[in-house]
Amino acid sequence: MATVAAKWEVSEAAPKIGSVIRTDKETLLSGEKAAEIREIMEARGVIVFPQINLSDDEQIAFTHTLGTFAHEDGEGSKDGKDAVYPITMDESINPIASYLKGAFFWHIDGTMSEKPILASIMSARALAQEGGETDFCNTYAAYDDLPEDEKLAIADLKVVHAMWRSQLYWRPEPSFAELQNWMARGSNTLPLVWKHRSGRQSLVLGATALEVEGMDTVESEKLLVRLRDWATQPQFCYRHTWSLGDMVIWDNTGTMHRALPYDHKSGRLMMRTKLEGEEAFA
């Protein structure tokens, strides 16, 4: 008896970033395509699974097919079991929703860690009537397209990252107590150019980038902003406009992302899982 071929259609989302995979739940949950998914994610940065409509338990199961399920900072577990994490501005659902306001600015998750998460997987459960899209940029492609003299100039630079810097983007005049609370998270010094074990290189930028080590404050800010502008040019970017049931996975080690503004009372709700990091910044 002939078997029915699984649905598996891969196309580009944008020239330098993003793939769209049209498939079915059974194929994803079987794990048969896990290695190919990881290859596509590393090569393209972002994968969209349109309206795949995975339940929370199915998303958890799918995450396990790709690598080690991440549990960090209170995320990823509930009552000792793996769990999805709600991304929402509704504090009745997520009590620390205000912390997520930093997500509206370009960033990489995990810049305060030695080994950042490998990837995030996010599913759309409820949408805002307007806004709420997610932007992604390919920091591998952005590095590759830099002029050679620029690559040489930044090759060995180190950047101090601090969580409090990203919070100032949305709350530029915090109380002293708020600032102290943010600063308690400390800082982390990272290479500006991440030399991955694969041999590829990417830029490490984003809202947590505080200053280039050993550089004048003004020149440091000019360099970080100029490189962010470079990396977020249209040719390196993909904007995802969500439909209910969409699931998107992105390589956190080779992309930056941000949410676009929306009405925080809209009920927009995303459910996120993560893959544990496998490689330290280097």
Rank of each mutant, 00 (worst) to 15 (best):
T111N: 08
M112D: 09
S113V: 00
S113K: 15
K115W: 00
K115M: 13
P116I: 12
I117R: 12
S123R: 14
A124T: 08
A126Y: 06
A126L: 07
A128N: 05
G132N: 11
E133K: 14
D135S: 10
F136P: 06
Y140K: 02
A141P: 03
A142C: 08
Y143V: 05
Y143H: 13
E148Y: 08
E148M: 05
E148R: 05
L152P: 00
I154R: 08
A155G: 01
K158C: 02
V160C: 12
A162I: 02
A162G: 09
R165Y: 05
L168E: 10
Y169P: 00
Y169T: 06
W170N: 15
W170D: 14
R171K: 15
E173C: 00
F176S: 14
A177N: 09
A177G: 05
E178T: 08
E178P: 09
E178Q: 15
N181D: 13
W182M: 02
M183D: 03
S187H: 14
S187P: 00
N188A: 10
P191L: 05
K195C: 00
H196I: 01
S198I: 04
G199E: 03
R200H: 13
Q201H: 12
S202D: 06
L203I: 07
V204F: 11
G206S: 09
G206V: 06
A207W: 01
T208P: 00
T208E: 08
